[in-house]
Each structure stands twice: as structure tokens, then as C-alpha cells.
Design a protein around this nucleic acid. Structure first.
Length: 429
RNA sequence: GCGGGUGUAGCUCAGCUGGUUAGAGCGCCAGAUUGUGGAUCUGGAGGUCACGGGUUCGAGACCCGUCACUCGCCCCA
């Protein structure tokens, strides 16, 4: 008797909770999102790198904040066979910062990196919230000037606009100030909340202990009232932080990026400062954040590197894939079809000839002419190249345009030339 | 981690207050059409009714538990 899960199915066919198989249609959308991000990043002068999917646990535990939810209850952490504690990455930035230090990249600053790949977080699954999900990510390392934030935010805006999501998404922006500002603000905020302790929700009372700034974006009705009258960080910025924020706003204006200042926007991770921003949508329910990031000047130092400023963002590929319009396959294949099994040999030879010439070619494995034509139709072939005894005798092929149904006999010698018109072209049925 | 909803064919769903071999549409396969796809018609395959237990003469329907998905909270991309 095979082992069974509690659900009663053989575990070998059960997906792990919060994971999914990305099948053809989804994969096309997934790729469309990734490629749009990469294409935009490239235009901004970024280069693509890849860091490991897992790191020593310390890399994340130290940088994300010992008390953050991600570290305390959401990481996939385990000991490998040598007894080292490793963790499947829950986010990109810490790994990129680690790579920056490990590879001595300090010398090559400023650096602009693009990454993509899977992330792992043990959360309760929901639409747009998976245990394995994918992100595209962009980081600028070694630039303290707000111009880097402007560039990174403009890149995000262009990326989303390129996906045709400009209307579905809005940019919210805030500043967290520098360390001095944040410390002073924290004290002020704590004092304010202490005065209103009785009226805060239980969740928020807990947050006061762990991350008081988080109370600011509570969804509880009662909390919101109190938060609305709470002191704002933007009112208590020290000179440096104020100058920084003003320059950022100016830069966005010049770059033509529309934003909305949200004084309640905060970050869950400890290493953020100054710029904090999110592109959000109403279309995905509770999981409305589609791209988020900010500045993390202290991170690399915190990890033991020479102090190096950084800024960047990550975007959820699955969330964006749900928002974009249907995508069409980019190439339609050419179907080669033998009339009768006896001609499969010569047709295979022809298929290989065309493939090596750069055409996308599909060949059925069995069946009558009608069946093979049906298959050609179903895979969206642009044209069918039909070869029967008659064609063989004349050293030719019959080429059928699948959209119009028109057929022409073409000499084998000039077949590639004739098929040029179907290369990488959608026929618009 | 907390609260609510849902779970019937590959997909979308029907199945009335528990009653004989569980249905439809789409899709799939085959044929009408032995050198021609998309349309139409005909036929066919496909279901431990999420899983386990209970109530009952009898459960897809009712009860309990589990699992998964989903909505909100939490968290966050």
C-alpha cells in the first residue's frame, strides 16, 4: 500500500501547498512580465546577475530584522547534510548585498543589477500569495544621491507602463528619513500611541512592541482614526533627510513620474531608510502591492561590508501576470506533413533542413493527412508544407497558407525563400 | 497564525426537502470525408461525487474531522 497524504492522494501527485505548476499559457504571461522588466532595465543600463536560491540562514536573519515576521515564521530554513543552517531566499536584496561583499564589487561601484527568480515564504496561501513565487528585482549599489532612487522608480513606472498597466496601478511614496530622523520619530510616535493605548486594536498593540511604524498602515477602522491624527514623519525630518526627500520629489517631477505621497507607507524590513515606495492596484484584492522597494543605505555595513548605500525594488511576477492582457505566442510554427507514413523519412529530412535554417517547424508523429492538418491548425501553424508522391516526383512541396487556405506548389530548392514570409509572423486569425 | 466561503468529468457548472446504473455544455478521441485543418452531424472515452469517519434501510446531498483552494485579517511581491 502506497503512502498517502491526509487528503488521501498518493503524495507523488499532490502539489505542495502554495506551489503551482506553470503551464503553457501561464508561462507565456510569466515570461512576458519578466522580459518586459529585463528589457526596461536594460534600457536603464542595468546588467543581469543571478545569486543562489539559498544562502546561509544568517544572511537573511541578520538583515531582515530578528523580529520581522519573515524571519520568525516564514522562512524555509533547514540544516544541510554538513549541519549548516541554510535558508531558501525569501527576498532578493540580502542575497545581492551578500554577493556584492563576497565578490569584492565595492571597487566597481556604482553597480546596477537586475535579477529574476523564485522566492520562498511559508505563508498562508491566497490569490497572489504563494509559498513559492517569483520576483523581478532591480538594485543600484553605491549611490547615495536621490538620483538613483529616481532612476529606479522611473524604471519601475516604465516597466509597468510597458505592460500596459499604467492605468491600473498607482505609485505611493514616502520617506523614512535617515537613522536620526527615524529614531526621533519613533520616540514621538511611541509617546503618541501610549496616550491612545486603550483605543488601539490588539494587532496594533503587538506591533508597538515589534515595529511601531507598522501601526501606521493598520487596516483596523479604530486604528485608522488614531493614525490619522498621529505625528507624521514628514513633519519631523532633519535637514539632511528633508533635502534628500525634496531632491527625490524634484527628480521624479523631471523624470515625468506621477506619484502620491502616503505618509502612512512603511517598510516591514529593518534595513530601509529614506525613499519607500509601492506601486499598488485595486484589482488583486488584499494582495494589491505589485512592486515595492526603497533605499537601504545601512544594509551592506550591517552585513560586514564597507558602508555602501543601495536602493532598489522587487515586483511580484505572478501578481503582474494576473493583471496583464492575454499574450499571444510570438512565433507560429510551420507544420510539415507527409501524405502517408511512407513519406515520413523525406519529410523528417525536410523538417531538419528548415529547422537548421532557423524556421520553427512542427511535425506530427502519426495519422492521416486530415489528422495531421487538424493538428497543424491546433498548434496555430502559419503554413503547412505538404509532401506526397506527386510532390516528390516533381521535386516540390505544396505550401498551404493556414489562414487563407490558399495553396501553391513550390520547388524544394526555393522553399526557404518562399517560407520567409511565415517566419515569426502571426497571421491574425 | 486567526475568522468566513467553497470542493461533482481535463474546464465551467447542474444535481430540488437524502431514494434505482451521477448529468449538461465546452474540450478530447473516432467516423461521416482512404491528398487537406477551422464549420456541422453522429458515436465514444473519461468520475474511488477532495479525503477519512459517522448518522441512515439508503449519502454527491446531513454531521464531525482532515486536506486543498478562496475571501478578509496578519504579513507582504
Amino acid at each position: 500500500m502506497a503512502a498517502r497524504t491526509k487528503a488521501g492522494r498518493a503524495p507523488s501527485v499532490e502539489r505542495v501547498r502554495g506551489t503551482r505548476d506553470i503551464l503553457a499559457d501561464d508561462m507565456r504571461r510569466h515570461r512576458a512580465v519578466e522580459e518586459a522588466a529585463w528589457a526596461t532595465a536594460r534600457r536603464y543600463g542595468f546588467t543581469e546577475i543571478a545569486t543562489p536560491v539559498f544562502e546561509f540562514t544568517e544572511v537573511f536573519a541578520r538583515t531582515l530584522g530578528e523580529t520581522s515576521d519573515i524571519v520568525t515564521k516564514e522562512m524555509y530554513t533547514f540544516d544541510d547534510r554538513s549541519g549548516d543552517s541554510v535558508t531558501l531566499r525569501p527576498e532578493f536584496t540580502a542575497g545581492v548585498a551578500r554577493a556584492f561583499i563576497s565578490n569584492g564589487l565595492r571597487q566597481q561601484v556604482p553597480l546596477k543589477f537586475f535579477c529574476r527568480g523564485p522566492m520562498f515564504r511559508y505563508e498562508r496561501p491566497q490569490k497572489g500569495r504563494l509559498r513559492q513565487f517569483h520576483q523581478v528585482d532591480v538594485e543600484i549599489l553605491g549611490v547615495a544621491e536621490p538620483l538613483a532612487d529616481v532612476e529606479v522608480i522611473a524604471l519601475g513606472a516604465d516597466f509597468l507602463a510597458g505592460l500596459d498597466l499604467a492605468d491600473k496601478v498607482k505609485l505611493e511614496l514616502n520617506t523614512l528619513g535617515d537613522a536620526e530622523t527615524r529614531k526621533a520619530y519613533r520616540t514621538k510616535l511611541l509617546a503618541y500611541f501610549a496616550d491612545h493605548r486603550g483605543k488601539l486594536s490588539g494587532d496594533s498593540l503587538n506591533r508597538i512592541e515589534s515595529n511601531p511604524l507598522r501601526v501606521l498602515d493598520s487596516k483596523d477602522e479604530g486604528d485608522r482614526e488614531i493614525v490619522a491624527r498621529a505625528p507624521r514623519i514628514t513633519d519631523g525630518l532633519n535637514d539632511a533627510s528633508k533635502r534628500y526627500f525634496d531632491a527625490l520629489l524634484d527628480g521624479l517631477h523631471v523624470a515625468g513620474v506621477a506619484y502620491e505621497i502616503n505618509p502612512r507607507l512603511v517598510r516591514g524590513l529593518d534595513y530601509y531608510c529614506h525613499a519607500a515606495f509601492e506601486f499598488t492596484t485595486q484589482a488583486l484584492g488584499a494582495q494589491g502591492t505589485v512592486l515595492a522597494g526603497g533605499r537601504y543605505d545601512g544594509l551592506i555595513e550591517m552585513m560586514g561590508g564597507t558602508p555602501t548605500p543601495g536602493t532598489g525594488w522587487a515586483a511580484g511576477v505572478e501578481r503582474l501576470a494576473m493583471l496583464i492582457a492575454e499574450t499571444e505566442p510570438e512565433v507560429r510554427p510551420i507544420a510539415v506533413v507527409p501524405v502517408g507514413a511512407a513519406l515520413e523519412g523525406p519529410v523528417l529530412e525536410l523538417a531538419q533542413r528548415l529547422r537548421r535554417a532557423g524556421f520553427t517547424v512542427d511535425m506530427g508523429y502519426s495519422g492521416t493527412l486530415a489528422k495531421r492538418m487538424r493538428r497543424a491548425d491546433r498548434i496555430g501553424a502559419a503554413a503547412a508544407v505538404i509532401i506526397g508522391e506527386d510532390e516528390i516526383d516533381r521535386d516540390a512541396a505544396t505550401v498551404r497558407d493556414m489562414a487563407s487556405g490558399e495553396q501553391r506548389e513550390i520547388a524544394l530548392a526555393s522553399l526557404e525563400h518562399h517560407l520567409e514570409r511565415y517566419r515569426g509572423k502571426a497571421d491574425g486569425r
